[in-house]
Deep mutational scan, measured.
Amino acid sequence: TRVETATETAWISLVTALHLVLGLSAVLGLLLLRWQFPAHYRRLRHALW
């Protein structure tokens, strides 16, 4: 049971790290898009909202 718990903890930390990385890359990508294509971003936002 001790090994299982350790594996579970490792998986949880791995998944958390993955989610953090994905979230950060998504935010960075959005910022980059907004910085590179302001007109396109505004049009996209206008279409979405």
Rank of each mutant, 00 (worst) to 15 (best):
T1G: 05
T1Q: 13
T1Y: 12
T1D: 06
R2H: 14
R2A: 11
R2M: 14
R2F: 13
R2T: 12
R2D: 11
V3A: 04
V3E: 00
V3F: 06
V3T: 01
V3Q: 02
E4G: 08
E4N: 14
T5D: 05
T5M: 07
T5F: 00
T5R: 03
T5E: 00
T5G: 01
A6L: 07
T7G: 07
T7A: 14
T7N: 12
T7W: 12
E8V: 01
E8I: 01
T9D: 06
T9C: 06
T9F: 08
A10I: 06
A10L: 00
W11T: 01
W11Q: 03
I12F: 06
S13K: 05
S13Q: 10
L14I: 08
L14F: 00
V15H: 04
V15E: 03
V15K: 00
V15D: 04
T16R: 05
T16Q: 00
T16A: 11
A17T: 08
A17P: 05
A17M: 10
A17R: 02
L18V: 05
L18M: 10
L18T: 06
L18Q: 03
L18H: 00
H19S: 03
L20T: 06
L20P: 05
V21W: 03
L22E: 01
L22I: 12
G23W: 07
G23K: 07
G23P: 02
G23M: 14
L24T: 02
L24S: 00
L24C: 08
L24Y: 04
S25L: 07
S25W: 01
S25T: 13
S25Q: 09
A26D: 02
A26Q: 00
A26K: 04
A26L: 13
A26F: 14
V27C: 12
V27S: 08
V27Q: 02
L28M: 14
L28F: 08
L28C: 04
L28A: 06
G29E: 02
L30M: 12
L30V: 10
L30G: 13
L31F: 12
L32Y: 04
L32P: 10
L32T: 10
L33S: 04
L33G: 05
R34L: 05
R34V: 03
R34T: 08
W35N: 15
W35G: 15
W35R: 15
Q36M: 15
Q36C: 07
Q36L: 12
Q36G: 15
Q36P: 07
F37E: 03
F37C: 07
F37H: 08
P38W: 07
A39N: 15
A39T: 13
H40C: 11
Y41V: 14
Y41W: 15
Y41P: 07
Y41G: 07
Y41M: 11
Y41C: 15
R42N: 14
R42G: 11
R42T: 15
R42Q: 15
R43L: 10
R43K: 10
R43H: 07
R43P: 09
L44A: 13
L44I: 14
L44H: 08
L44E: 00
L44N: 01
L44F: 13
R45P: 04
R45K: 13
R45M: 10
R45A: 09
H46W: 01
H46E: 10
H46A: 05
H46F: 07
H46N: 11
H46P: 03
H46R: 08
A47F: 11
A47I: 08
L48E: 07
L48K: 05
L48P: 01
W49C: 10
